[in-house]
Design a protein around this nucleic acid. Sequence first.
DNA 1: CAGCATCCCTGTAGATACTG
DNA 2: CAGTATCTACAGGGATGCTG
Lengths: 126, 126
Amino acid sequence: MLDASARELDPYQAGCPTRRILDLIGGRWTVLIVGALGEGTARFSELLRRVDGISQKMLTQTLRSMERDGLVIRTVTAEVPVKVEYTLSEAGRTLTEPLRALERWSIEHFSGVAASRSEYESRIAG
Amino acid sequence: MLDASARELDPYQAGCPTRRILDLIGGRWTVLIVGALGEGTARFSELLRRVDGISQKMLTQTLRSMERDGLVIRTVTAEVPVKVEYTLSEAGRTLTEPLRALERWSIEHFSGVAASRSEYESRIAG
DNA sequence: CAGCATCCCTGTAGATACTG
DNA sequence: CAGTATCTACAGGGATGCTG
């Protein structure tokens, strides 16, 4: 649903604030974290395992900015040891579909892109 | 269409080569350039105007990597002065829909994200 | 017109070590 | 368990000046 101000927004204009949001998506971990949370709530350590290769630092940092942006809800349960659960907010859930589409695109077009890359390299080198 | 190798690809695995492709999308200009080329062929200088705020350097650089990855076709016409046209390849066109979805998402959810951010800031500060 | 080359600054991200 | 803190390295990206 577009509110009044949304109609004025144009990402092709330099000053447009939506560019800061495109940046959000640009952070290369966001796509994977949203995907990992698509199946439901997860704890910090679970995410660390699901998103293979992410460091603690980047997971914390990315989750913080996602929380700040209202994409993710963080719930702390005061047990010992502490339990922290992350889940997608309503807004976050609306991101899963577009991001899954990108994920699918990456998988489907990987071999074509790889072929194009090596062909390009040899064309330059040769 | 998934070929045999595609079935093995899982972006949630650290070594997965599709992560390099997600990076491609991460470059924050790619989204806007694909969008700008969605309406058809454009010359270098046209793109420079359409994608407001991009520098010559970044436009060149991003177009090169998109060409290398087979998303964009570059056509040089030997006139004086030179004419260089860019157009989306078949693969590039398949990206327009998913990326437009993200663009729409940014526009539609901007105000919500902005609100969440300021609310978060004041919660921290307070 | 459509670039390439260069300098330089900053943010992103990894590694590592420590704590409530 | 779920972080925080610090140090460091490198790539992303802007500004400027030059060229086929």
